[in-house]
Design a protein around this nucleic acid. Sequence first.
DNA 1: TATGATGATTAGTG
DNA 2: CACTAATCATCATA
Length: 431
Amino acid sequence: MDEQPRLMHSHGVGMAGHPGLAQHMQDGTGGTDGDGRKQDIGDILQQIMTITDQSLDEAQARKHALNCHRMKPALFNILCDIKEKTVLSIRGSQEEEPPDAQLMRLDNMLLAEGVSGPEKGGGSAVAAAAAAAAAGGGVGSDTNSAEHSDYRAKLTQIRGIYHTELEKYEQACNEFTTHVMNLLREQSRTRPISPKEIERMVGIIHRKFSSIQMQLKQSTCEAVMILRSRFLDARRKRRNFNKQATEILNEYFYSHLSNPYPSEEAKEELAKKCSITMSQVSNWFGNKRIRYKKNIGKFQEEANMYAAKTAVSATSVSAHGSQANSPSTPNSAGSAGSFNMSNSGDLFMSVQALNGDSYQGAGVGANVQSQVDTLRHVISQTGGYSDSIAASQMYSPQGINTNGGWQDAPTPSSVNSLTEGPGSVHSDTSN
DNA sequence: TATGATGATTAGTG
DNA sequence: CACTAATCATCATA
């Protein structure tokens, strides 16, 4: 407490304006007083230095005393000058902020994704894209719309979270900025803080907060991307075709086994019947061909089944002589065992002959071929060939060449022989 | 949860 | 461009 009187003692120095030290040097107290003044300033500085050690009340009182001190404005000005220089030099080195390309990109993306930007229309572009992509997948319109709305709901959710967080962030940023500004303004009365410096501080705060904002934007972008890939990537939303579609496709495949390459029209027809797209039909046949060829044995049972089916309907529909060779038309794969080896051998030969005759023929080739395929399966089944080697030995001369590919068929099989539904085959032999 | 089935994608080919 | 072969990612089931 003994500092107080010292603080208050006067030097008679004019302290009015902001001219700084130079002015009060001239203020008529004389050069000899210089040392004393320095001493005095030293004291004040000492007090400032030790002020932190004091209690708060004491500090408050001290502050008040300092504020009231006649030397204070002068000292303050000096400090301001020094500070200004320092700050300016700092400023110079920090000023040029690189235009944040990353942030711009994030902003653009969020805008494009409909997360930021106008409230209502947001996401419509994405929704349209999703719809288009889903339509390409063609899994079924109801599933499409369901997934579509699901996608939109999730996007809205992300959007909501984003905006909530953004609001929170802005609020926090503003609060903090105001707080700091008030604090600095308050402090600027006792320590040299220029408005510029406050401004700079605000800038620093904003930068800090904008890095948080960037993180928010980044994670939002990530979330949207994940959502997008989840909903728009066709692979991810793969659905098995329904049973009927698979049945139709399989019937076509096995009834055209020697040349399982549906024409454009046939694909179109199949696509329509199976409620899938043409490219899905192509995919299916591509997969089927390769998988069948890779492991014929594995598909034996299936082949027999469809062969039996088509054979049944073929024989029942048509009363053609060629069908006379057909064994007693097994209704299912289960009845396969009833045929003996020699029988099937004969049949195989006859079918080969039939095939050989008709395959290159211009007229009813495709239709007869269909029958041949059908019969061949019935035969293979009756023969009891169950391993793939035996099967491929059997089929190779027919459809699959030694290279592992099907023989080149001059013309794709006609859609006319396409089955109308599971179990019922329209065989063109009646033509 | 491991595993096979299956629809979609991709690189390469003619 | 249609196709094959390989591969991926998901579905379905034991």
